[in-house]
Each structure stands twice: as C-alpha cells, then as structure tokens.
Design a binder for these strands. Structure first.
Lengths: 201, 201
DNA sequence: GTCTATAATCAGATAGAC
DNA sequence: GTCTATCTGATTATAGAC
C-alpha cells in the first residue's frame, strides 16, 4: 500500500544525530539552537554533523520530516474498526486527543507553525500527513454513514478535528488550563452531542 | 468600564519604533530580527531604541502587547446586538473569520505560538485578551438562550470559536487552501447546522 | 569518517560626542 | 535625547590532522 510520504533510511549515526537534534530543536526552537549544542547532545563532533547533513537548514528539515513521519505514520490506521458511530467516534476522539496532548507533539506543532513561512515545504508535508489525512479519514467515514445526515462531510470533519486541535492550542500553548479549565471529557461529550443528536422516536 | 488589560501610553517616537518593530518582527520572527534592521525600518538609530526600551526582549514584549491590545480591543463589543440567534451567530462568525484571515493577524498568531514558551506572560495575555474573551462572550450568549439546549455552554463555545481558529491555522498556515480547499461559507453553514438544528414542529 | 582548531561573520549592547 | 563608532561574545561553516 503506497504511502503519501516515504521515510528516508538513515544509518545509526545519522539517527543519533537526528535524535540529538530533536531534543535541542524542540526545546529551543530554530534560532535558539546552535550546532555546537546539537553536537554535544548527539555525542559527535560538529564536523560529523556537517558531513552527514548539508547545513543547519538541512539538518532541521531532515529532523522535522523524520518526526512528522515517525509520529503520524499509522496513527489513523486503527480507525477503520466497525461499531456504532457513537462508540467509534468517541474512541477516535479520545485517542486523537491523547496523542495531541503530549509534550513532544506540542513542541513539534509549535515549531512547525513558527517556521511555516521560512520552510513552506515542511508546513505542506505536515498539512498532508496530519491535517489532511485526519480530515479525509473522518469525512470518508461520514460519507459512508449517510444516516448521520451531514450535508457537507468535509466541513463537519474539519469541525470535529479542528476543535480538538484548537483545544490543544488554547489549553496547552496559551495556558488555558490555568485561565479557563475545560476537560477533555467535556469537549468530547459536547462534540458528540452536537454531531449525534438523540434519535427522535 | 474597566478593561482586562490597559494599554500603555507611548510617545510618538516610541510609536514609530514600535511600528518599525512590528514590520520586522512579524515578517522575520524573533530570532530572524536584528536590532539594526528595526532601527533602519523605524528611521532611528539603534541607541535610540535602547534608550526607550530595555533590550531586545523588552522591545519584543512591548510590541506584542501593543499589537494584541490594539487589534482586539473592542473586537467583541458589537456582539451584544439583539436578533434571532441564527442571524446573530452567522454574523458573529463571519466577522470573526474576517478578522482572523488577515496577514498581520496570522503573523501575530504565528509569532505568539512560536514564542509562547520563551515568553509565557505574552501567551497568557493573548489567552486572556483573545481566546478567553471570545469564549466567554459566546458562552454567555448561550447561557442567556437556554432554548438552544446546550448542556455545557462553555464547551460548545470552544467548539464554535475553536473550529474557526483551527480553520485559519489549517488553511492559511499549513497551506490547506492548496491541498484541501474549504470556503468560509461552507464552514459557517455547517457550524450553524450543527448548533441550530431545524426546530421540530 | 571523525575529530580539534580556526576562520569569518554577525548581532546585541555600550561609550562618548553633540 | 539622539547619533556614530566600537566592543564583545557567539555562531555558522571549514581546513587539515589522524
């Protein structure tokens, strides 16, 4: 089965460099990361990095692609299970939110947004791998269940996925948990109440 | 009427510096901005900037606060109009989306997210001024209209506001407009269809 | 292939004249 | 208060030995 993006194959030393780069870039951002720091974190010399990756941009790009593909490859595979829409959608939402509310995931999202103008190809890769894949999966499911009565499955899919993404941004990045708490369960309950109103007898 | 945040008063020269800082920071980010560039853009010398603002961090903080307060002060004031919920909510959504889909607004949002870890007080200011204010306004409206039948008005308010915020992020920052077009009208139509299902006779 | 040492550049911050 | 000129440290990238 062909994938949207294919992951490059890396040698163990390259993986060590990438892992060090992940730790530093995700914590300090692009501008706040020095190649010396990456070298120290990866346990290699700086020249070794330059011999495997073209320059700082090349290392950053490789690391971000690596993370995006690794983290989301297969994320949506388990969602084709049978079952009642209410159960399936609740489980999908809970799994998706659980993946999103994660230190590394949030740092990756923040960095993708931060550098989306300087690295548009990275932003597009992320758009295809995460956002488009999620939205397409959900809208395909909605299309297969016309009894749900959605006139525009893609727009509904965006609302479903997008309110979870914005939840993470509001609560985790903009410190909403301190200012205006809102539990994941409350979000999921209200989402399902909107999408699956109780059937009329 | 007291406001959540009070805007500092700046002299004309300080405003000129801040305006130059806005242009450079929003375009190039924090790390990509040099004080020399800001000085050139503002038409003053670098030392003049340092005499008015403590250092690069201080200038950045002042500029971001300035933008946040200027841009959103009064944004939500006109939303207390009477009218049918369907009309009012459609107009609110259209106005809100129109404000959000704007070059400067998107650049500010991107920069806030990018620097939210290094400048947590800025992120909290943004959370209070934009996100919390929007969510509170909408949930207050929902509470005043119990006939809408929302069990958890705050969660519904998040879904309403959050799907618009994530729409901007997906379509404008992650190049969704090229990969998976979705017009504002389709989003608003589906949002209102979910929130305001046709009344049963 | 990998390391140590170094070159060249750049940016934040300041000194001192006017 | 504002400007020109400068200092200092950090950073990217490379040269050359092993």
């Amino acid at each position: 089965m062909p994938r949207i993006s294919s992951a490059p194959v890396y040698t163990p030393k390259q993986v060590a460099i990438l892992d060090g780069a992940v730790r530093v870039f995700l914590r300090s951002g692009y501008g706040g990361t020095s190649m010396d720091r990456v070298a120290a974190e990866a346990g290699v010399s700086k020249q070794t990095i330059y011999s495997h990756f073209q320059d700082k941009d090349g290392l950053f790009t490789a690391m971000m692609e690596h993370m995006t593909i690794r983290r989301f490859d297969g994320l949506f595979d388990a969602a084709h299970l049978p079952g009642e829409p209410a159960d399936l959608m609740r489980q999908f939402a809970a799994t998706f939110l659980h993946k999103l509310v994660d230190r590394d995931y949030i740092a990756l999202l923040r960095l993708m947004i931060a550098e989306s103008e300087r690295f548009p190809e990275l932003a597009k890769l992320y758009g295809r791998t995460v956002i488009q894949q999620g939205r397409t999966l959900v809208s395909t499911y909605f299309r297969a269940h016309p009894e749900l009565g959605f006139a525009d499955p893609e727009a509904i899919a965006h609302i479903f996925v997008g309110s979870m993404v914005s939840y993470v941004i509001a609560q985790e990045i903009f410190y909403g948990n301190e200012l205006m708490p809102l539990s994941r369960d409350r979000l999921i309950d209200s989402l399902l109440a909107l999408l699956l109103p109780p059937a009329q007898p």
